[in-house]
């Protein structure tokens, strides 16, 4: 029985996804869009609403993030020598972008090796203090896979074009990908840093049949709670004069007496 060290965390994350949180991950009133090119051996041009937006966009490259006004954008992908977007190799597809959300549009292969495109929503909901988020997306022409972290199966049976995610203590994880139920990695192991208040998004892309599977990584800032106070003193030793007498006594008397005074104060207060 293989265990999933992230199973519980993943369930919690999915429940929490989509909750509006206070913070600063996407500019007010805007949507954030990145574009990942995950189709091997095909340099392309990207047109947005008919305008050439990315020229000679190469496989494995990530463009953005762009801050865009919310709305629906039409994206067409053409060969890199095309004069316009009249003969796209992919699309045009509509990308509906909502305010305050983060997206990654990915051009990639489907499980059978045909070019396709998907608009993923990046979960930027609030992460707990000390934690970051790890997302894994299968966008490769390959069967379903297991995703390993630090030598254990973290996510089982992930298929193209699905994603899984979990919130984890901030740390660097050794990630690897095997075919479902197998142990030999087809990708990795690769070090993946999960940092606080950041969604680290890992893509398995390329083609198993063509031997060009690869790992791409993107990071986006998540929402995070900001402190409501800073309580930065414990003894009164740096006080302005009016509040200092007890503190001065403590200075003269040292730690043992200080503990005694504090004890007495507590007893009196009780």
């Amino acid at each position: 029985m293989r265990t999933s060290i992230f199973a519980g965390a993943a369930a919690g994350t999915l429940l929490a996804a989509g909750v509006a949180a206070p913070a600063f991950a996407v500019e007010d009133g805007m949507a954030e869009l990145s574009v990942l090119h995950g189709v091997p051996d095909l340099t392309v041009d990207v047109y947005v609403d008919g305008a050439l937006t990315l020229d000679d966009f190469a496989p494995g490259d990530l463009a953005g993030p762009l801050e865009l006004a919310p709305g629906t954008y039409s994206v067409a992908i053409t060969a890199s020598d095309a004069a316009d977007d009249s003969s796209p190799v992919l699309g045009p597809i509509d990308l509906p972008l909502e305010e305050g959300m983060s997206y990654t549009a990915v051009a990639h292969l489907d499980a059978d090796g045909n070019p396709t495109a998907n608009l993923f929503t990046n979960d930027i909901s609030e992460t707990a203090s000390g934690e970051g988020r790890l997302t894994v997306r299968h966008v490769a022409a390959a069967p379903a896979v297991d995703v390993w972290a630090n030598g254990e199966v973290a996510f089982e049976n992930l298929a193209n074009p699905d994603e899984v995610m979990a919130d984890l203590p901030a740390a660097t994880y050794e990630a690897a990908v095997s075919l479902t139920g197998e142990t030999d990695p087809v990708l990795g192991p690769t070090d993946v840093p999960v940092t606080e208040a950041t969604n680290t998004i890992v893509y398995a892309w390329g083609s198993a049949a063509d031997g060009n599977l690869a790992v791409a990584v993107q990071t986006v800032a998540t929402h995070a709670a900001m402190p409501t106070s800073v309580s930065a003193g414990t003894q009164g030793l740096a006080a302005d004069s009016s509040g200092a007498p007890l503190a001065l006594i403590v200075v003269g008397a040292g730690m043992v007496v200080a503990a005694g005074l504090a004890t007495r104060a507590v007893l009196v207060r009780r």
Binding site: L36, T53, L54, F57, G60, D61, L62, A63, G64, L66, T190, D191, V192, P193, V202, Y203, A214, V215, A216, V217, Q218, T219
Partner: peptide, 11 residues
């Protein structure tokens, strides 16, 4: 528009 390699080793 910033474009950069997304390769894991370039993170």
């Amino acid at each position: 528009i910033p474009v950069a390699s997304a390769a894991a080793e370039d993170l």
